[in-house]
Simulated scan of single mutants.
Amino acid sequence: MSTPGSSIADFLAMLAAERGAARNTILAYGRDLEQAQEMIGGQLDVASPAQLARLGQGWSSLAPSTLARKISALRQYFGFLVDEGLREDDPTHTLPRPATRRPLPKILSHAEVEMLFATVEDEASGDSPAAVRLLTLLEMLYGSGLRATELVSLPVSAVPRDVPFLTVTGKGGQARMVPVSQRAGKALQRWLALRPGDSPWLFPSRNGHISRVRLFQLLKDLAVRADLPPEKISPHVLRHAFATHLLEGGADLRALQTLLGHADISTTQIYTHVDAERLVRLVNERHPLARRRSSD
């Protein structure tokens, strides 16, 4: 049974063990709940509906996304208390319900992606390890839709031998198989031949593997050399481009969810806005009633 003050730790442990929540999510929820406890001046697990209503008022100046996260943390926490029999009522009905909109992803055109590749392919035409490494990183960001953290932390053991798949550990420690294109596979083989040392990491550095910050810097510098605005290029933008361009090519949304490692398909659905015209055309051309009208 939880002791006073320990229920927050128990809730966070449940998130990690049962829901596979990412470490950053657990830390953020922990900060939100501790802050809420400080604001009410007592134990959060016995807070009244009136105290929670005052919390919502005190957070009214926060950005909608931040407010939504804090309220989500509280609702999940009190739901946990009720499920565990630590509380009979759920007081969160007095919290506001912020209307948030997931921001639309930044989009790269096909031409802009081609400019990036033309630049790095020209630079990697020789055997410069730095240029071949950057080509490999770009191929795997745009060709496989990897997150920055997933890419830089890839071990050498994840590289496919006979099967064109990578084994990637994503958010919450969830493993998934990610296809590697023929282009990316060729770049990988070039990089493996030039890769220095015996580090267990695919992209080693002096202190382990290259960092997310270093990956951002490499891409910004490449954008400048490709005559593109550096603020427009990042690992996540390339991941968005991977998803967007696959949808444009007719990819199934469920398949895209699997490739991106999204736990919830609602996260994947953000990409459908870029392909609205194709979807409308699909309904007009492929729906049985559309064909019936044409025959009439």
Rank of each mutant, 00 (worst) to 15 (best):
L55I: 14
K106H: 14
R133Y: 07
L62F: 13
R183T: 06
P129L: 10
L151I: 08
F117S: 13
L238E: 02
A22M: 05
Q182F: 00
G41Q: 07
D275L: 06
D198A: 08
L259T: 03
R292H: 00
G41I: 03
P4I: 09
E88L: 06
L137Y: 04
S125F: 00
L138M: 08
K186Y: 02
G170N: 12
L55R: 12
R87I: 04
T119S: 02
L166F: 04
S211N: 06
D32Y: 03
N207K: 13
P64M: 06
A187R: 00
R54N: 15
A130D: 15
E123L: 03
H209M: 04
L108A: 04
H262F: 11
M140A: 09
D127G: 09
E231V: 05
V82K: 13
S6Y: 03
G197L: 07
A68E: 03
P200M: 06
Q57C: 06
L202Q: 04
A276T: 09
L222I: 10
V152Y: 01
L104Q: 10
A50P: 09
L202A: 10
S153Y: 07
A124M: 01
T3I: 03
L260H: 01
P105S: 14
L137V: 08
L222N: 04
P288M: 13
W201M: 00
L279Q: 08
V113I: 15
S65K: 14
R97Y: 13
A187E: 02
S125M: 11
D221A: 15
M115W: 04
L95D: 03
A223R: 05
L146R: 01
H287L: 09
A193R: 15
K171R: 11
V280N: 10
T119G: 00
A111E: 14
P229C: 07
T267D: 07
R254K: 14
V46N: 12
L282V: 13
M39A: 10
R239P: 14
A111Y: 01
P179R: 06
S48W: 13
V237T: 13
I8D: 05
W59P: 04
L166E: 01
G79D: 10
R97N: 15
V224Q: 13
R97E: 10
L62G: 14
R239C: 11
G56L: 07
L138E: 08
R225G: 07
A50Y: 08
P160Q: 08
P230I: 11
E121W: 00
G145Q: 05
A255E: 07
L253P: 02
